[in-house]
């Protein structure tokens, strides 16, 4: 277990470093950052002074090393627009996005796992067909459109939920559903496929031959083996959701990281964008790491060599 953990951790660090390099070079992908910052009316001298002021005149590897060294200490520099430390702004907004992502994930799993299990117990039954329909609709529907539909019915027609803001839990209901619904189909189909496969396994027959109750057979013996790929998927999708929350947060005007990213792009606030991308990426890496750990815990074949 320990060697597996160590190896997995090493890989995670390497991936994080690669991501940081790509994130950093983002600045140069959109042209000369000094020109972009100086604006259209700037003279040659203005651009030159901005370039030296922000250190864009140094060799790129030096800049990267400097940026990485500071980033590791939690210093992402100053926001060009807000004139505040980037780290401070991000850590103010991060909890909101995390909360949204978590609610969405819980919503998605609570809906998809039981549906997937039910569909697998009775393949081609009414439940299975209904679940399939939900999956197809979910896969086909753009999340922004779904979000607007929710808003229209629950917010305006029935007046059940607030439309915008992030002050109370009620504000999170619609965004969580809109965000979580996106991963429900995949998680549900994966649970169903996994359960179908596991339920025909020999060890399920053994469990039944022991006279175990069908609930024990289903949840103790089958689900634990069927759920492994769903966990990996959930982790990856959770990462996507943090990124996807840019759309949802903007629609519902939720003051999270996604909304901040959207604002920063409009303001050409490079240090802010760099930091957001890096934070989200590292988060993503941590999630896949967590999923692997969880899988190792659930599946002794990974854990015990």
């Amino acid at each position: 277990m320990f060697t597996y953990l160590l190896r997995r951790l090493g890989v995670a660090v390497l991936v994080a470093l690669t991501v940081s390099l790509i994130t950093f070079s983002m600045i140069y992908l959109s042209g000369d950052p000094a020109v972009a910052l100086a604006g259209e009316a700037a003279t040659e001298e203005d651009i030159e002074s901005i370039r030296t002021y922000y250190g864009y005149d140094r060799p790129i590897l030096v800049q990267y090393g400097d940026w990485l060294f500071k980033a590791l200490q939690g210093d992402f520099g100053q926001s060009h627009y807000l004139k505040q430390p980037v780290a401070l702004v991000i850590f103010e907004r991060l909890p909101t996005t995390m909360m949204l992502g978590l609610c969405a994930l819980v919503f998605a799993l609570v809906l998809s796992i039981p549906l997937g299990v039910l569909a697998a117990i009775r393949p081609n039954s009414l439940i299975d067909r209904t679940a399939l329909t939900i999956a197809v609709i979910g896969q086909a529907m753009p999340s922004f459109w779904f979000a607007l539909t929710l808003m229209l019915w629950f917010g305006i027609v029935w007046r059940l939920l607030p439309i915008t803001g992030s002050d109370s839990w009620a504000n999170f209901v619609m965004p969580s559903i809109a965000l979580g619904y996106y991963i429900t189909p995949a998680a549900m189909r994966l649970t169903r496929a996994g359960m179908l496969e596991v339920l025909s396994a020999d060890y399920i027959r053994t469990a039944r031959a022991k006279g175990l109750r069908s609930v024990t057979v289903l949840f103790k013996h089958a689900l634990r083996n069927a759920i492994l790929p769903v966990i990996s998927l959930a982790a990856v999708q959770f990462g996507f959701m943090l990124g996807g929350s840019i759309v949802i947060e903007t629609i519902f005007a939720i003051n999270g990281l996604g909304f901040l990213a959207w604002e920063s792009i409009q303001r050409a606030d490079l240090p802010m964008m760099q930091a957001i991308v890096l934070v989200l990426s590292v988060f993503y890496i941590l999630l896949t790491l967590l999923a692997d750990m969880l899988n190792a815990w659930l599946d002794p074949r990974i854990r015990v060599a």
């Binding site: 020999d202 060890y203 027959r205 053994t206 469990a207 013996h221 002794p300 074949r301």
Partner: peptide
């Protein structure tokens, strides 16, 4: 059963 390799739950 016939298949001892798969008749026990791996988990």
């Amino acid at each position: 059963f016939q298949e001892p390799m798969t008749s026990l739950n791996p988990a």
